[in-house]
Design a protein around this nucleic acid. Sequence first.
DNA 1: GAGTGGTCTAGACCACCGA
DNA 2: CGGTGGTCTAGACCACTCG
Lengths: 255, 255
Amino acid sequence: MGTTQLESVQEPKYWHLKTVLSEALDSDFAVGEILPNERDLAARFGVARATLRQALEQLELEGRLQRRRGVGTTVAPPRVGVAVAAAQHDWAGGDSDEAWQPVECTTGKAPVAVAAMLDGAAGEDVHVVRRIRVTRGQSVAAELLYVPRSSVPELSAIDAPSGPARARSVLRELHRLGLDGQDRSVELGSARADDAKELDRLPGAPVLVVTTRYFAVSGTAAVSVATYRADTCRLTFGDSGALEISHEEQERQAS
Amino acid sequence: MGTTQLESVQEPKYWHLKTVLSEALDSDFAVGEILPNERDLAARFGVARATLRQALEQLELEGRLQRRRGVGTTVAPPRVGVAVAAAQHDWAGGDSDEAWQPVECTTGKAPVAVAAMLDGAAGEDVHVVRRIRVTRGQSVAAELLYVPRSSVPELSAIDAPSGPARARSVLRELHRLGLDGQDRSVELGSARADDAKELDRLPGAPVLVVTTRYFAVSGTAAVSVATYRADTCRLTFGDSGALEISHEEQERQAS
DNA sequence: GAGTGGTCTAGACCACCGA
DNA sequence: CGGTGGTCTAGACCACTCG
């Protein structure tokens, strides 16, 4: 039999759907515009809702869409470039628009994975500083900064029991230390419940986990684990002295 | 009625499942061990297969599991740390274990997003070099390197029609140029069909997209778009002169 | 061919948001 | 309250790998 297998696409429906939607997004939709709801879209394309959702999920992962329960699906703006590099040493920070905001500070044991990076500080108590990074009025990252007690010996134990005030104290002490280098890694993760709440996302949302080790002369002075919203963020690194500028700075310069 | 709402978990089943599985993975399984198949697991936990799969998907995203069609689900080894920083200027490369392998080289127009970064080279033809990065015998990244003709004028047009030989020619010319800086960004994406094949994954698999702009005195000399397997890779950046070493190098030093 | 994960369906109910 | 996206089910078939 001349079974010529006419155009046996062999391409998953959701994948093809994603492509079609992606092109439609480019041509027929403006940023912020809301799409038809999932049931209508599925019917329009003649697929089950689950299949349609699989395509939407991918597009959301790529930062093309934004979905909110009870509201709808909207076209997402281009990802924000957030700088993850130098200029980090201004621990005090808080003034700039593109900065970290200390939220609170507790004390306790570090998770094993973190403790392993804080050489020698096996069972030691650490200060845990919670910070939020806000860009354009939107929180893009949540961080836990682990600072061994031994790194900031000057800190009086009863400076403030917890809260932002104490967080700022720890950061100030860290600043006084004078760090000489850091060591960073980026990987994909999913948001824990607490991070998800800070980032206004559902638990399990994809995040970029940036782990930074801060060195002082005496060794590792602190470890930071920052989780960035993977859907809305593009992490930028200024490895050169060259013209690395974030979008935000570009806008500021334009004015 | 005394509806005390006993323990209304209010936590999605798949999320709870993920937690349970994650703990089981830590305690009861060794790296490489294969899990029971999805139908059995779903039955064991009393959920539908789709729900079980949602949990497995998350765990795979976090690099805890590895799933292969026709084979099964296995416990994944810890993520590989791959260095994404200096030492990149050895364009010729190819000798080291942890290096890029040129695969082929074609010529054509750059995608608009890339062209926008190659200032001034709007409609110009560019060399497109395909490279694969292999670590521990496993390909971890696929790259497309876009080099405007004007960046490598010395390159004879008919050096080699395509293939690895020509790729090496382009890289050699680029090396002669002497670059003075680069500018990098990392974001989440999903693998295009061609990248997926190189990375031995299915299309749409989550990847970390590293976009690098290489500067020469005259401006942007080249743009690279590298996609790393998000499930198996941890990108590391040596921002300090300090002891940033990859796992591979550690092993090499140990010997 | 038997067994695996990958895709797809057609329903159902739930949590959340806004009018 | 109605409409949205988020979760879940119980099935079916497919593509792939391996013995």
